[in-house]
Design a binder for these strands. Structure first.
Length: 508
RNA sequence: CGGGGCGUAGCGCAGCCUGGUAGCGCACCUGCUUUGGGAGCAGGGAGUCGCAGGUUCAAAUCCUGCCGCCCCGACCA
């Protein structure tokens, strides 16, 4: 058995989770580090995941009446200054452009032509988009303004990790303007719902919707809502955020409109975004010790056909059969796009199959002369053991391939959901809470903890104390009554009255 | 940015302590043999040993500085 028990990824999740994460990205060919500190190269197999996310979300946004637009990468430094909390939130991680030319000096290129006003590379675009909005909006008849942009942003992070936290990342940022607070709040809520749908129905990631505590809020927001997911090391990942910005940014950018009654009023704005971080979440939700596991609805490709030749004379008939099968499969639609079919005719024996296991393709199909003779294919699924393969009639396979993909999609979600539920606990005793979040070996912490649903009095002091002592934060105040609990209780930290339970966890 | 670890072929590593001019496994190329499976044998290609200085007749190896990556903190999508 020895050899067959070896897993494709080393170390395993259990042995060294963060190293495992890096190895999965490498083995699945999703991305790689770049020569630029903290910046990644997203390779085709990873970028297609992003393209699929973009396709799905873009359709959802458009159904909500949101239009795409594009705003500058560079933002005048003074713009950031307009909103007090906003500056404070981002000032420490801004890339600043100070020159516009290079000159040769002693054979080396040196910056020259200093800018009169430095520009920052957008860490987010509220201020520059707000400037446009202030000119676009005159009357209540112009509202709402519903805009989204697909862009890159730069946040100069101290510690980076591919997909999860890189200095540059890709995202979408939605920005809207409304005549009333209720309308803005409702829109921000609907966008959060879209993110939940994307996560649940496409990425197969179960998420908890909720709102952030004051200390975790977006700088300048009145309310930040989020979806939080549990990774396989039981840490929380914020997978998407939606902000109700009140009138803070309207004030900063001077977004005024004339109301029905003829008065000049400050508008209400929102912003909301998800990023390439979702791909990191995808990996840490589903990948196993054999590599990536792609949920079919977001997978770069759905089926790989692996022709098997026993003799040279097999080659042509098998390839013809395989090409023909590929053509039939490609006529099918799945999750709003054409079924993705790869043909891999490399003659490298079983290693070829492992390449695709590591890449996480949902279905592998082996086709040799024997299968052809039977009118069958030999199929393996990524969500079952690599040894667990079976012969299926070719016609039946073609007819049911989308059902099989649906089944893989469903089971991938269920597995992630069961994992989260297994590591989500209601805790009411302070000691129990501390035990839950304390590894038995602090030097080399084992995978431990999870989501603790505990009461919190609402004070920043208790929140900070828990953060300082355990590195545990309030991920969100959940909307789901089953999680928030029925009625008041006692704060896990100070014992004072608490209105509801919140989600405590270590976080990325 | 503080503490620790690491940087040698595409990937994973040995060699470093005790300097002598580079090796192993996998992958890659060629040939033969195999053939329902991470194949076997033989041959082969591929590395300015992270970068820059220094010590030395000689540096992957010793010394200094820098860069990058990983882990633990502080900061964050």
């Amino acid at each position: 058995m020895g050899k067959s028990e070896t897993r494709a990824i080393q170390p395993t999740r259990e042995e060294n989770y963060s190293e495992w994460y890096q190895q999965v990205i490498k083995a699945a060919d999703l991305a790689e580090a770049s020569p630029v500190r903290g910046c990644m190269v997203i390779k085709p197999w990873g970028y297609e995941v992003w393209e699929n996310i973009r396709h799905v979300l873009d359709g959802m946004f458009k159904a909500e009446g949101v239009k795409n637009a594009y705003f500058p990468l560079f933002i005048p430094m003074e713009f950031l200054q307009k909103e007090a909390e906003h500056v404070e939130g981002f000032a420490t991680e801004c890339a600043v452009v100070t020159h516009h030319r290079l000159e040769k000096s002693d054979g080396k290129l040196v910056p020259a032509g200093e800018l009169a006003e430095p520009l920052i590379v957008r860490p987010t675009s509220e201020t520059i988009i707000g400037e446009s909005f202030s000119r676009w909006v005159k009357s209540y008849r112009d509202l709402p303004v519903l805009i989204n942009q697909w862009a890159n942003v730069v946040r100069w992070e101290m510690r980076t990790r591919i997909f999860l936290r890189t200095s540059e990342f890709l995202w979408q940022e939605g920005h809207t303007v409304h005549a009333s607070a209720d309308e803005a709040m409702a829109l921000a809520g609907r966008m959060l719902d879209l993110y939940e749908t994307l996560a649940r129905d496409y990425l197969a990631i179960p998420v908890i919707k909720g709102r952030k505590s004051e200390s975790e809020r977006f700088p300048g927001a009145v309310e930040t809502m989020c979806i939080e997911a549990m990774m396989q090391d039981r840490k929380a990942l914020q997978a998407g955020t939606s902000h109700f910005l009140g009138r803070n940014f309207a004030k900063a950018s001077n977004i005024l409109f004339q109301s029905e009654r003829g008065r000049m009023e400050l508008a209400w704005t929102t912003s909301w975004g998800v990023s390439t971080r979702l791909i990191g979440g995808l990996i840490m939700s589903h990948a196993d010790d054999d590599g990536m596991v792609m949920p079919p609805k977001i997978a770069p490709a759905h089926v790989v056909l692996l022709p098997i030749f026993r003799k040279d004379s097999d080659r042509q008939p098998v390839m013809e059969y395989v090409e023909n099968l590929a053509a039939r499969l490609r006529e099918k639609q799945y999750a709003g796009r054409r079924l993705g079919v790869e043909i891999d005719a490399k003659e490298t024996g079983g290693a070829r199959g492992w390449e695709w296991i590591k890449k996480g393709i949902p279905i592998r199909v082996e086709i040799g002369p024997k299968d052809m003779a039977k009118g069958a294919v030999f199929m393996g699924r990524r969500d079952t053991s690599h040894r667990d393969r079976k012969s299926v009639g070719t016609d039946l396979f073609v007819d049911t391939v989308t059902d099989i993909l649906d089944d893989i999609q469903y089971k991938t979600y269920q597995k992630a959901l069961e994992f989260r539920e297994a590591h989500t606990v209601f805790i009411d005793a302070r000691d129990g809470f501390y035990d839950f979040f304390t590894p038995s070996n602090p030097q080399q912490p084992e995978i431990h903890g999870g989501f603790a649903l505990s009461h919190w009095c609402g004070s920043p002091e208790c929140e900070k104390k828990i953060k300082d002592e355990l590195s545990v934060t309030i991920r969100c105040i959940p909307y789901d009554r089953n999680l928030a609990g029925d009625g008041p209780g006692r704060c896990i930290c100070c014992g004072k009255e608490s209105p509801c339970r919140v989600v405590f966890a270590k976080a990325y």
